[in-house]
Design a protein around this nucleic acid. Structure first.
Ligand SMILES: [Mn+2]
Ligand SMILES: [Mn+2]
Ligand SMILES: [Zn+2]
Ligand SMILES: [Zn+2]
Lengths: 138, 138
DNA sequence: AATTTACTTTATAATTAGTCTAAAGTAGAA
DNA sequence: TTCTACTTTAGACTAATTATAAAGTAAATT
């Protein structure tokens, strides 16, 4: 994907293609593989790898906007900070509680045997499965 | 359970039975049903229902101590604050994303069809399943 | 093209959950 | 009763996130 594609993508979804948003698109979507990151990770990545100092507020704004448009997912763990995910397909995670590393689980590799009925009057929005892992202490 | 039982329970697990810990035991374990709560919930509950002003630091200390002893569980959601659970049996949750209400799912009602192999060198500690729900918008 | 408008970025302040600290208090051992 | 180690506490501190309001910029209007 090239620059102009991002501009179109942004414009098509009603977001003005600003310099900051385009650069963030490059960082997030011009990659071979999808990945997980925190707001801070991204801010630093923009600075170092893209030579673009973007204010934290803008990083938050942009990620929330992208999330609303479905371009990224937000993953919340017990970890007091939240993670974003450029893999927007429906999938679950391993989470290394020692290193705070998130690892995708292939969709087909984990499935519920039975989905319980939600409490009366409520309906299911989505399901998060997190498998906490740790390094084998040799 | 009466007061003396809590004192023994605490002493047996190497925790000094202080006034604060005993009162918190009463609040948490002298109930018909198990329940979910935040640190703030508990601090307020102690004040109002038990006439016991316990400093926030102590509430944190006590909950972390109780967690380590296995008397409560901690549940982490995207919600920036964490929840504690007096239901220490292995179980999963519905989470109402609008009201921030946690609801137990009976252990038998949800089960994985297949547990994926953890990444090489890591082993599974535990699995958290959260089914996000919302009120039917009538 | 110049002007206007609405949206966006930014620095900075505010909020909030949680941790840390060091002094004062207390349970249990001696 | 005295001593010691553990505990409680107020208040300072940290860190993620949100709010504010001024300055900047993309797009629409003239
Ligand atoms: Mn925590
Ligand atoms: Mn959040
Ligand atoms: Zn993922
Ligand atoms: Zn529960």
């Amino acid at each position: 994907m090239k620059n102009q594609d991002f501009i179109n993508k942004l414009r098509n979804s009603g977001l003005r293609p600003t310099k900051q948003r385009i650069k963030i698109c490059e960082a997030l979507f011009n990659t071979e593989k999808t990945f997980h990151f925190t707001v801070n990770d991204l801010a630093k990545m923009m600075q170092k790898n893209f030579n673009e100092k973007i204010s934290l507020a803008t990083v938050y704004n942009t990620l929330h906007a992208f999330k609303k448009k479905g371009y990224v997912k937000e993953i919340s763990l017990g970890n007091d900070k939240s993670y974003f995910d450029t893999n927007i397909s429906s999938h679950h995670h391993f989470f290394d509680t020692k290193t705070n590393e998130l690892i995708d689980i292939d969709s087909s590799k984990v499935e519920l045997k039975n989905i319980p009925n939600p409490p009366k009057g409520k309906s299911i929005k989505d399901i998060d499965i997190v498998i906490n892992v740790e390094n084998d202490s040799q």
